[in-house]
């Protein structure tokens, strides 16, 4: 008997390959994607340094690394189906036997692989320019980083499903939510817990965003925060549970939303209508 990977795996691999190839096949793409995270991270690091608190410069560098992935989730995951629809690619997806969830997962994996060089360059530049003091607990960093990406890209899949019903609104929505989510998630400063400037109610809202939990856990595992115990799994186990639950539930939600919208689109005949 000849073993063959399922169509789901083959589809996910194919979509991942296309995305990876489109990024690594054009090295200039790194230059395109690195601009925003690099400059914002440098500016925030200089702002921290201007206050005299050099120990917090690492927050800005970490923020730059994670904002690269958030940007990718928003612009290359959430909006992707909408762009595919404009170009007529989405019609091919739905008329082929390829499972849409496999396409989304492949797109996510390709996005992570493709964003990694930009994120690494931001980290490298931050290290070269500022040499921020770190006190890492590497096993925790690896676990939290992986789970944060899983939850973030699952959120991207959910948004991709929802954006299917929108036209130009999707672009405007992306532009409108990019900065506020970065603010609430505390990309450059702690937005939840004792160090947060936000009132409790706002911290609760912020905690619903996977990036918030991930950023908080990454700061705890990478930096020595005053008044907190040294980083270990004790300090982040709640974060790990929360991120795992978020990743799982967002994946299920994405699948259900996609199915519902696909059925609605087929019924009303609007699934492949290009609105602009």
């Amino acid at each position: 008997m000849k073993l063959q990977p399922s169509i789901w795996l083959r589809t996910a691999y194919a979509r991942m390959w296309v995305r990876t190839k489109s990024i690594y096949g054009e090295p200039l793409w790194v230059v395109v994607t690195i601009g925003f995270p690099l400059f914002t991270s440098l500016a925030m690091a200089l702002l921290y340094r201007s206050t005299g608190l050099n120990s917090a410069v690492g927050f800005a560098v970490l923020g730059g690394v994670m904002i690269s992935f958030w940007g990718n989730v928003l612009w290359s995951m959430a909006s992707q189906f909408q762009w595919d629809k404009q170009q007529g690619l989405f019609e091919i997806y739905i008329s082929s036997p390829a499972p849409i969830t496999a396409i989304l997962v492949g797109m996510s994996l390709g996005g992570i692989i493709g964003t990694a060089p930009s994120a690494a360059l931001v980290a490298f530049a931050g290290w070269v320019f500022f040499a921020p003091p770190i006190n890492p607990f590497w096993p925790g960093v690896i676990v939290v980083f992986g789970l944060t990406l899983a939850a973030l890209y699952a959120l991207g899949m959910t948004l991709a499903s929802l954006y299917l019903v929108y036209g130009r609104e999707a672009e405007a929505l992306n532009e409108a939510i990019h900065e506020p989510v970065s603010l609430l998630s505390g990309v450059y400063f702690p937005s939840i817990g004792g160090f947060s400037p936000f009132p409790f109610a706002l911290q609760v809202v912020a905690s619903l965003i996977p990036l918030t939990i991930g950023m908080d856990a990454l700061r705890r595992t990478l930096f020595a925060l005053p008044g907190l115990p040294p980083a270990g799994f004790d300090a982040i186990y709640l974060h790990v549970i929360a991120l795992s639950v978020m990743a799982g539930s967002l994946l299920v939600l994405a699948q259900k939303a996609l199915k519902a919208l696909e059925e609605r689109g087929r019924r009303t005949g609007t699934i492949a209508v290009r609105q602009r």
């Binding site: 702002l47 900065e179 702690p190």
Partner: peptide, 14 residues
Amino acid sequence: ASVMAASIVYWWGS
């Protein structure tokens, strides 16, 4: 959001 983020970074550091 952008102004608030920069202001909070300054507040946090200072």
